[in-house]
């Protein structure tokens, strides 16, 4: 009997001491917690790359008031002060229902259009952690109502003829703190088109990128390529270059572009300006965010 205990004791002793490291150096590792998932954030500074949507949403409970402005083209001459006398604009109110879903409403004076949209995050790029995901994916859908008077008031005109639809998938990757790239496959449906020969459905591929120079300053570029020659010959692809300036609650986006419209179906399917002819417009977006619903940090119990 004694022998059994004498034998047992050292075994138990080693077992116990093995289970409970005495040095305590790795107290945290005792819990065996796996590394947490860290999602990429701030892939772009703003909810727009330039004209087009970026992978970013406004956060839940946050209202974004946006003023977008495009001057006339540089080549419009001294009488129009090289475009500065002319203004196309869009006013927008956009709101994050939660951190995944945002909705927006905008009004622009180009063709008296009202646009309504939603943007939904489907999944997010994982920066580090046990799960891997190289890109972020969002879905964007918008509807635009054109307000201008009917071209031919004597014809049977239907309300639905004023409507346009746009669907986009946003695929973005933040390569590092500086560089982010986005691909934007786009589908636009137009209920009414000008001539019988025109297509109702337009497909396009958008390319967007940003390069962050400092904490507060980034340069952006964006190009929408309409696929399959489905637009009339006067139309061109939209190309824009710009900078993002961030100050506290504001983001200023300054850019040059050949598109006058500031909603998706507009700058993708209705751009007529040509860079080579100097149909370039200076423009800006100002974004000011207001926290409507504050996330109260719970105080210590």
């Amino acid at each position: 009997m004694i022998r059994i205990f004498v034998f047992c004791f050292p075994v138990l002793f080693t077992l116990l001491s093995a289970a409970q490291p005495e040095n305590g150096e790795d107290l945290l590792s005792l819990l065996g917690d796996s590394d947490p998932i860290i999602y990429s954030s701030a892939t772009f500074k703003s909810t727009r790359v330039i004209n087009g949507q970026s992978i970013e949403n406004v956060a839940g409970g946050v209202m974004d008031f946006r003023v977008s402005h495009r001057f006339g083209t540089f080549n419009s001459g001294i009488h129009k002060m090289f475009g500065l006398d002319i203004a196309s604009m869009r006013l927008g109110l956009e709101y994050g229902l939660n951190d995944r879903v945002m909705v927006g409403l905008g009004r622009s004076n180009v063709n008296e259009e009202v646009d309504a949209f939603t943007k939904i995050k489907i999944f997010k790029q994982v920066e580090s952690g046990p799960r891997k995901m190289p890109i972020s994916l969002s879905y964007f859908a918008s509807m635009v109502m054109r307000g201008t008077a009917w071209a031919d008031p004597n014809r049977d005109n239907y309300f639905t003829s004023r409507l346009f639809y746009c669907h986009q998938l946003l695929l973005a990757r933040k390569f590092n703190d500086q560089l982010s790239i986005q691909l934007t496959p786009t589908f636009v449906h137009r209920n009414l088109v000008e001539t019988k020969a025109d297509f109702h459905d337009i497909y396009a591929m958008g390319y967007g990128g940003r390069y962050k120079l400092t904490r507060r300053l980034a340069v952006n570029a964006e190009y929408f390529h309409v696929l399959g020659n489905r637009l009339p010959s006067g139309n061109t692809n939209s190309l824009s270059l710009g900078v993002d300036l961030e100050t506290g609650g504001h983001v200023f986006q300054l850019h040059i572009t050949n598109s006058a419209s500031m909603n998706e179906k507009g700058f993708i399917t209705e751009t007529t300006g040509e860079w080579s002819k100097g149909d370039i417009q200076f423009g800006f977006n100002i974004s000011r965010v207001f926290t409507i619903k504050e996330k109260k940090p719970p105080l210590a119990q």
């Binding site: 860290i38 954030s41 956060a59 703190d177 904490r215 926290t291 504050e294 996330k295």
Partner: peptide, 19 residues
């Protein structure tokens, strides 16, 4: 968690560089 989402973004992106 911050009261304002933008503060939270700046905290993680600019100051403590959480990534």
């Amino acid at each position: 968690q911050f009261e304002k989402a933008l503060m939270q973004e700046h905290y993680n992106e600019n100051y403590v560089e959480s990534s």
